[in-house]
């Protein structure tokens, strides 16, 4: 019985689901199936239940499930589209889609804005940016005095916060990243172009009769 359940969980998503995900994202059907190989591996790393929990997500990023990190947590929360506390395969594909090289800059800017809007207020607030800076310094063992952090924040907000209300809205963020395009580097994963060569075993598990190019 246990074997049966375990094996059924390893099945690919239904053909219609795969085709729909491919139609609604930058991925081909083959790439969605290759992503399933990756999803299956991450989602079975702690509990083999066909879902990625936060511990498994952190383990995939850091190779260490004990390490709590506000950025990984934030990304996990954004990937958890249905707010169930876990990432299912559809969430995984749709969220990773934003990181595809072919996806519009507008979508990448919107996602990165949400990423830094830690409290979902519709603004990136100075206190949030300070919190993230302190977390980054802690993570990287880098030490900066508080007045240096304040200087960095002042400089950043004087450039980004054009209406000087102490917070950054989406329009200001769009202007800011246009002047600092390197900020969007984290929003593109070139790896996603080659996902089928990274996970070629999808061919043996495919549910789709004719693998679309």
């Amino acid at each position: 019985m246990g074997c049966f359940v375990s094996r059924s969980r390893r099945k690919f998503p239904a053909q219609e689901k795969t085709v729909t995900l491919a139609a609604e994202t930058a991925f081909t059907v083959s790439e969605v199936e290759a992503l399933y190989e990756l999803f299956r591996s991450i989602s079975s790393s702690v509990i083999d239940d066909g879902l990625i929990n936060k511990e498994e997500f952190q383990l995939a990023i850091f190779k260490n499930k004990k390490k709590e990190n506000i950025f990984a947590t934030r990304i996990f929360d954004l990937f958890d589209v249905k707010k169930k506390g876990v990432i299912d395969f559809e969430d995984f594909v749709r969220s990773l889609n934003v990181f595809h090289p072919n996806v519009s800059l507008e979508d990448k800017i919107a996602f990165s804005f949400r990423l830094y809007d830690l409290r979902n207020t519709g603004f990136i607030e100075r206190a949030e940016v300070k919190e993230m800076l302190i977390a980054l310094l802690y993570e990287s063992d880098m030490k900066l005095a508080d007045d240096v952090i304040e200087t960095i924040l002042n400089k950043t907000f004087s450039e980004a916060d054009l209406n000087e209300d102490g917070k950054i809205d989406l329009e200001e963020w769009t202007n800011f990243v246009a002047k600092n395009p390197s900020l969007l580097k984290i929003m593109t994963l070139p790896y996603l172009r080659d996902i089928t060569t990274s996970f070629p075993s999808f061919i043996f598990n495919s549910n789709v009769d004719e693998v679309a190019a």
């Binding site: 990756l38 591996s41 991450i42 995939a60 990023i61 850091f62 190779k63 990190n69 506000i70 950025f71 990984a72 947590t73 934030r74 990304i75 990773l96 990181f99 990423l115 830094y116 940016v129 993230m132 800076l133 977390a135 980054l136 993570e139 990287s140 880098m142 900066l144 240096v148 200087t151 960095i152 924040l153 400089k155 950043t156 450039e159 980004a160 800011f176 600092n180 390197s182 900020l183 580097k185 984290i186 994963l189 790896y191 990274s198």
Partner: peptide
Amino acid sequence: DQPTAMNAFELISLSKGLNLENLFDI
């Protein structure tokens, strides 16, 4: 670049927690 020469978001984007390339390293 020295940390003080970078803007806050350039620094933040250095976090490993934001580097999703690690997801593919399985």
